Computed example of a mutant assay.
Amino acid sequence: MTADGTPLLTAHGLLLREWTPADLPVLRELFDDPGIAYRTPLAAPFDAAAARAYLDGVTGAPRRLHLAITTDGRTPLGEVLLDRDRGTIGYVVGAAHRGRGLATRALRAMTEYAHRTEGTDRVLLEIEPDNAASAAVARSAGYRRAAGIAAETVTDKGRTYELLTWEHLAPAA
């Protein structure tokens, strides 16, 4: 939320807002999940200390926009983030809130924001080849595999894997 308490982005039935210290218990609930730990660089277990460190890190990161996904402006259901320097978006929805189209709607909202407000011509996602759910979200939000970009090999938390690049191009003016 901005200083006056309004959501930063309102689109597709979502109110996307900044994280606050009041969200620490919800951050733990959302991110302390084996599936999220497996697919993201988030700490595992995602305990109180990890939640505090995460909140401190995202609050002071002007080149990254981390927004809580909400439908009511209050209760976080997940997160969508934009790395302004790389033009990449990431998203995660808590296990209890999946299957409601939240990831697709949040990705669409952040993609539109990146194109219109940030002036990003080409927005990117990085998705593991076997992450069918994330690939389905990408397709639903209008992304396609980027041609000519080789898979990136990453090692995180003792696991080595590949990331495929997906892209969304700004609409022609």
Rank of each mutant, 00 (worst) to 15 (best):
A138M: 01
D72Q: 02
G148V: 08
V137W: 01
G78I: 08
G73F: 02
G57P: 06
A147M: 12
R84F: 04
Y143P: 00
A146E: 12
R98Y: 08
T104I: 07
T111H: 01
G99F: 06
A133H: 06
A106V: 08
G73N: 09
T59G: 13
P76Q: 09
L102T: 02
T88V: 06
E128K: 03
G73I: 01
A138D: 06
T71Q: 14
Y113N: 07
A147T: 13
L124P: 03
G94N: 01
I149Q: 08
D72C: 10
D156Y: 12
E79P: 01
D121F: 02
L125N: 00
N131E: 03
L124I: 06
A68E: 10
A61N: 15
A109D: 03
D83F: 01
G142V: 10
A146P: 04
A132H: 05
R63W: 14
R63I: 11
L67R: 03
A133Y: 00
L81T: 08
R105L: 05
G119I: 08
L107Q: 10
L102V: 05
V80C: 12
A151F: 05
G90N: 06
G101H: 05
T75P: 10
R84Q: 14
E118S: 06
E112F: 02
V93I: 13
I127A: 00
R108D: 10
R145G: 10
Y113I: 03
R84P: 02
R84A: 13
D56V: 10
A68H: 04
T75I: 13
E118D: 11
A61L: 06
A146V: 06
T111C: 09
